[in-house]
């Protein structure tokens, strides 16, 4: 294959991987923040996140015939998903994890898996009542178009991207912008506010935080609220990207995002973002290994195609656990939450 075709192709694969990676990054934040305060892997987070995707679906469905501006619909979907997923996460902690505080670590872990299963089937039941299983997003008009294809003020940007062979849809750009805004907001809350400092203090030393007058239970709830709200955002972004979801769709991206959190160093916020982006790119690259196979004359690799792409993150997980269990940005030199 000619380099002139291959290069833009790889660039597109990487850009696609980064877009996917932003979704993983936002999901991974939910795992890493909760781990930061409780040293608990909240396996229910994949369902907290997919609940956000379902809420997003419902908002777009209810508003599908409304003449409302598409971005306003998206904003409503995001806020509704944040509220529902955030409160759901708080409720899970309050009802399922708090009573188990102080018991061996395996106990809340298994509880988390149980909560995850309960939520999956509850979501399926609720949508099943209305005769639905697979939920297909009805996106506002234009979201699926090529970025800057039409509008004359913006078209030069779109033309430029096409000239260099980069091909993105409007919804991909929206996804990245929403993700960046979420990351900025989280960074501000965690590093600049009184609440953020208190959450960090609780995650570093809960007992001593109490001596500072900080109610650690309140801060743990706040962490679940923030982590859950981010899960809601990522759910809507996931729906935006993939179009069709169901009650069980949270599992795969959940486990990949968890891997991302471990890769970056569990408990580390920048680590979760880095891990998410890396895994998104790795997954997309592995999905096109057959291209490399042709290029390098390794024809037998040609049988590896996109359906194997999820192997990538798990190979990474195994490698990271063997060679650097603290993760890329883990431990001493990084801010935990």
């Amino acid at each position: 294959m000619e380099l002139s075709i291959l290069l833009p192709f790889i660039v597109n694969v990487i850009i696609g991987g980064l877009v996917l990676g932003f979704v993983y990054a936002i999901i991974a934040l939910g795992y890493t923040m909760v781990y930061g305060v409780l040293q608990l892997i909240n396996f229910a987070h994949s369902e907290v996140f997919i609940t956000g995707a379902v809420v997003g679906f419902e908002v777009f469905r209810i508003l599908q015939d409304s003449a409302m501006n598409g971005y306003l619909k998206l904003l409503i979907a995001l806020l509704a998903a944040m509220a529902v997923s955030g409160l759901l996460n708080v409720l899970i902690e309050r009802l399922a994890y708090r009573p188990l505080r102080g018991s061996p670590r395996l106990v809340p872990l298994i509880t988390a898996i149980g909560v995850s299963l309960i939520l999956q089937d509850t979501l399926r039941f609720l949508e099943g009542l209305q005769g639905r299983f697979d939920l297909t997003y009805t996106l506002p008009a234009g979201f699926g178009d090529k970025f800057c294809a039409a509008e004359s003020t913006c078209a030069p940007v779109g033309n430029f991207l096409r000239t260099i062979g980069v091909d993105v849809q409007l919804k991909d750009v929206i996804l990245v912008v929403v993700a960046l805004v979420s990351l900025g907001a989280l960074n501000y809350v965690v590093n600049r506010t009184r609440l953020g400092k208190a959450i960090r203090a609780v995650s570093q030393d809960r007992v001593t935080a109490g001596l500072m007058g900080i109610d650690s239970n309140l801060m743990i709830s706040a962490t679940f609220l923030i982590g859950g709200a981010l899960g809601g955002v990522s759910g809507v972004l996931f729906g935006l990207k993939f179009g069709t979801i169901n009650a069980y769709s949270g599992f795969d991206p959940g486990i990949i995002a968890f891997t991302a959190a471990v890769l970056g160093g569990i408990g580390s916020i920048p680590g979760a973002v880095l891990g998410g982006l890396l895994l998104g790119v790795i997954q997309n690259l592995i999905g096109v290994t057959n291209i490399f196979g042709n290029l390098l004359g390794l024809a037998n690799l040609g049988t590896i195609d996109a359906s194997y792409s999820k192997i990538g993150p798990f190979i990474v997980l195994v490698l990271i656990l063997i060679f650097k269990p603290t993760g890329l940005l883990g431990k001493s030199n990084v801010e935990k939450v």
Binding site: R194, K197, A198, R200, A201, Q204, D205, V207, T208, A209, L211, M212, I214, V334, E335, K336
Partner: peptide
């Protein structure tokens, strides 16, 4: 019991 990952100033602010 200093918060190890907070700066000196942040420890005081907490």
């Amino acid at each position: 019991r200093i918060f190890p990952q907070l700066s000196v100033r942040e420890n005081l602010e907490v």
